[in-house]
Design a protein around this nucleic acid. Structure first.
Lengths: 357, 357
DNA sequence: TATTCTTATGAGACCGGTCTCAAATGCGAA
DNA sequence: TTCGCATTTGAGACCGGTCTCATAAGAATA
């Protein structure tokens, strides 16, 4: 590999030489610390301008120990949920003069571990992570710098956490469905299950998903539906396409009349699949999804959604983390942001006499 | 400010001491360079493991001069166009073990300058920028490290550039409209104009926008429509809401029968505004937009779009830049990716006898 | 066995900043 | 006039790596 443009960058020493002062003095004015007389300050500044001096942030970080950047590990930036959250984080970070190094985990623990390792090696001052698996958190526990969790809580990890009231949200959303008479409701998520589900929600590794499912099951019980666990479908869009899932659902013995989708990406696939199967929303199938994605209001019919304050979610974790960076040592905070349900037109009365095909 | 967790990190010297070798030798095995005997290597590795040594990437970067990360400055990550492109960039970067530091410019030149300054101070090895203004590029010219342009070309800047065939895309899209009989077509973009437009496309500071407008005007001319310039509307969603614009358009003397939208965010606003004004697509108003955003296929009617290979756009710039980082010194490449038009149901025949209200 | 060539190791400079500490300077007070 | 104190300044160590260069040990050649 060729030695690329060995940019002979201007250093503090160069400036000092031109300004005829010591390196220490030049560094003082350039770095904005210590005390320097006005005359000397002006001279140094002039020399710096003449030489077009640019500080080397890396060298600075090396001695100070702080890099002025935080690392953010999310599942997938392409998912509008995350890109909006990242936007919230960035906005807050920028205000504090901190910048953000982004990494995708693709919801894979190994990739997550790796990303964290790299970020840590880069000496980020703090880390915001959306943990892919709540089962494997050893790598999170041993993180030495401030850590904050986004969207997913980890009971065993006492760190600042910002989530939404997933359980309650799912509960309320499911109630809307049960109150409309639905008795066969499917819950569909992209999350994959490591191991067997068998209805033991505790086995679910993503806190967000677990909480939602708990809420879902609770609402089902309220409505007198037992065995709602069987109607929970994992890995949509990953291990199985939404279209396949849809066809499987339609052929099944307890063909659902309503679906609760765990995120807007899954919901969009489901929406398309429902159409492709020749079904109509909400006549043949009701649909509610998490995340008020932009498209949900323009479909026919528009979709009833659980509106999560995604931007605020990002903003809050960033604020929490930055406060921590500034030396705050209060006990970890767990903020739970409220969701609201935006009722649109995708929920209909359960078709009363619907017989199995 | 308190001195936060002064994590007394394990250094090469520590490992060397435990392994009873010199710092240089330990550094050789830990850094993976030079030649070391198997016995010593094993001893050092063992010591490193015992101490849980983690390399300090910053210190490494300092001496090597390369930081192993690239900076990406985009207009707005929240726009699905950019988040998809960033995804393409990240994927390629990860494969090369390079990571990405992201910055938002919010399409503001000053913010862009600032972001670049910060990124450069962090010693990024290369930069990918979506320049906000083609008028102000002095700050781009003086960048010392490899630079690549994403989505927007700058004729005066001889650097690797990846764009799409905006002009031709707009031309073809507009033709679809003119061939459907439309003679009053509006072009709507979120880009803001610094100064006065007066039909001089050369005054437009964003190459992408300029090229598209050129294509638009050309197609209008072909169809015998002069003065198409008057139907170009800037700053939608920024200086004026889409709803207001819509109402203004409907009241205007040459009330348009079709709209070409410059990006999917604008298009979504327009779509909603059209509905709110009680109009129907495509009966009262035809609509085509740039970017095959996910929602465009699920609306009623689904929207005809200009499909840009966004992911490939990001992938290509990243590849170009990384090649550059590896020492490639071929003359700058300007890649223009082809677009395709996906015709859906949002274009109708122009209402023949439509009279002005 | 003496000589040359490899290969493995150690000593220490270096990257570009920060920061400690001591010396130099200037000023008011005694 | 002299002393003491506050303020500026300079010298140099340091951060945690990389890397050059010299040396030591071992292998190959003569």
């Amino acid at each position: 590999m060729k030695r690329p443009p060995k940019a002979p960058s201007v250093t503090v020493s160069d400036v000092a030489r031109l300004a005829k002062v010591s390196k220490a003095t030049a560094a003082r004015v350039l770095g904005g610390y210590g005390t320097v007389s006005e005359t000397v300050r002006a001279a140094v500044l002039k020399a710096a301008r003449a030489l077009d001096y640019r500080p080397n942030e890396l060298a600075r970080s090396m001695t100070t120990g702080r890099s002025g950047s935080i690392g953010v590990v999310v599942g997938d930036i392409e998912n509008p949920f995350f890109s909006l959250a990242v936007r919230g984080i960035s906005d807050v970070a920028r205000l504090s003069g901190i910048n953000v190094i982004l990494a995708n985990s693709g919801e894979d623990v190994e990739a997550e571990k790796n990303a964290i390792r790299v970020l840590l090696a880069k000496q980020v001052d703090g880390l915001i992570v959306t943990p892919a698996q709540s089962g494997e958190i050893a790598h999170l526990k041993e993180i030495a710098c401030p850590l904050a969790l986004l969207d997913r809580a980890l009971p065993e990890l006492a760190v600042d956490t910002v989530t939404v009231d997933d359980r309650n949200a799912a509960l309320r959303a499911t109630r809307i469905l049960t109150q409309a008479g639905h008795r066969r409701i499917a819950y569909v998520t992209a999350a994959v299950l490591s191991g067997d589900f068998r209805g033991a929600a505790s086995r679910i590794n993503t806190s967000t998903v677990r909480e939602r499912i708990l809420g879902f099951i609770e609402a089902c019980r309220e409505a007198g539906m037992e065995g709602a666990e069987r109607n929970i479908h994992f890995g949509s869009g990953r291990s199985e396409s939404a279209h396949n899932l849809m066809q499987r659902l339609l052929k099944s013995a307890d063909r659902p009349t309503a679906i609760l989708a765990s995120d807007s990406v899954v919901a969009l696939d489901l929406f398309k699949a429902i159409r492709e199967c020749g079904l109509s929303i909400p006549r043949d199938m009701s649909l509610i999804t998490f995340h008020d994605a932009d498209w949900t209001s323009v479909t026919t019919p528009p979709i009833t959604v659980i509106d999560q304050p995604v931007y605020a979610l990002g903003k809050s974790v960033a604020e929490l983390l930055i406060r921590r960076l500034k030396g705050d040592d209060r006990p970890p905070e767990r903020i739970v942001l409220p969701t609201t349900i935006i009722e649109r037109m995708s929920v209909g009365q359960s078709p009363q006499g619907s017989k199995r095909p």
